[in-house]
Every structure is written in structure tokens, then in C-alpha cells.
Amino acid sequence: MKIETHMNWRYVCRLDELPVLGARVIERSDEEGGNVAVFRNDQDVVFALLDKCPHKGGPLSQGIVFGERVACPLHNWTIELKSGEAVAPDVGCTKRFPVKVESANVFIDLTAHA
């Protein structure tokens, strides 16, 4: 593993422990930076975002997932899972974390700024 050696990978769960077109939450205190949402879409791509909508902090993990997007459960902003960017015309961005799936195991680096 070349460039990845400096990464701080942590094991999250097995891929099939994440609901398809859904998400689960990694709980962290506010001091640790707050909860992280780990999403899985129907192509088994996994994404991780800070569980805070750029609008008013809604928990994105609770939204409806479609394509590579999630709709925030509070006021229905749409957020790109890949980039954390709100879809126009809304403007804002939420922090994202590197994730990888290896032999159906999901890993995250909570220390890195993706």
C-alpha cells in the first residue's frame, strides 16, 4: 500500500451492515467534531460526510439517498455525497471523509480532510 501508508484507516463495519440507499451514524462528541454519516448507494459505493447539513445542521444520515445524493430530512436541501456540496441553487458544503471498501469491509479515516 503505497501512498496510503500515512492514512489513518479505521474499520467501520461490513458493507452489508449498511442499508442499501441508506446510512448509519458514527457517533462522536462535539469535541471530537460531531457525528459522521456513512452512506451506501445502490451501486455499493460508500461515502462519508459530517452528519450536519450546511443549511441548519440537519442530520444528513436520516435523509433519503438517491444516485450519489442525499436529501436532508429537515428542509430538503440536496447534498452531493461525493463532494459534500449542496446542489444548486442552494449553496454550502459539508465536510467529507475518505472511505474505502476492501473485501466487503468498510474503512474510514476520521483524521483526514478529504
Binding site: 500500500m1 479505521r10 474499520y11 448509519r24 457525528n35 456513512v38 476520521l110
Partner: peptide, 21 residues
């Protein structure tokens, strides 16, 4: 009802979880 939603995940160092790579 998918009850997994009520259980938060705690990430752990890979070595503790699965055989070392």
C-alpha cells in the same frame, strides 16, 4: 423496521477487527 438504524457505529483500528493485511 430496520433496527440497525438505532445502533450507532464505533470505528476501531483495523488490527483489532479483522486479520491484519
Amino acid at each position: 423496521v430496520d433496527t440497525r438504524q438505532f445502533i450507532p457505529i464505533k470505528p476501531i483500528a483495523p488490527a483489532e477487527a479483522i486479520p491484519a493485511e
